[in-house]
Design a protein around this nucleic acid. Sequence first.
DNA 1: ATGGTAGTTCAACTA
Length: 256
Amino acid sequence: MLKIATWNVNSIRVRLPQVLDWLAVAAPDIVALQETKIVNELFPVEEFRQAGYQTICNGQKTYNGVAIISKTPASDVVTDLPTFPDPQKRLLHARYGDIAVVNLYIPNGMAVGSDKYAYKLDWLTQLQQFLYERLGQMRLLVVLGDFNIAPADEDVHDPAAWQGSVLVSPAERAHFFQFIDKGLVDCYRLFKQEVHSFTWWDYRAAGFARNHGLRIDHILASRQLAEHCKICRIDTAPRKLERPSDHAPVIAVFDL
DNA sequence: ATGGTAGTTCAACTA
């Protein structure tokens, strides 16, 4: 069994104790982390090593930053979209045996029509090319992370209120469905799930307490990998702790 | 239509 998870931790410095506690309980094999907000030199590699995990990271000061921690070593590490020079650290690819992992922190986009929204769409366009190439290379591919896209209205607590916003705009959703068209499978939707299942809740206005959230963190798998997916679920337990991340982890289990 | 909170950093930006 191979257990793979994604979690936007919103600062690894603040969340390290929660992540270590969660690893001890959930016992995943591979975890993709986003918004680590730390340069590589300061990433708590030793703390994870003592917990039985190896680290690769692609970080920066203050913003963004991705990392993958794993029980087995990584190979074929890629930290950038080859066709998109970008000072923002948002992508980390590695291979673990036969499986390739693409950890994403897709830009938020701030507001439809803004410069940041244009940057998000450009970034997504270049990502499509990268994923196309990876799918040609690797039979078993998992693409996971904070996509900052809620693919359908069922992934939004109040679709009418979100109409016209980033994370739900038609252009962003079109990119998500381009992933699906490429042969990537949304593992979460392979299984019957509760309605109003979300992975992110705004810190403001008691978003979590009222379940005012979005499903924007995803685990996509190539068809040949998705065939082996036995479980995919959102773990809301860490979101209930004191001083939580605004995102909950998503976990997928494969019988490999 | 605005504001609500959190993290980094210490005024302002991002989410």
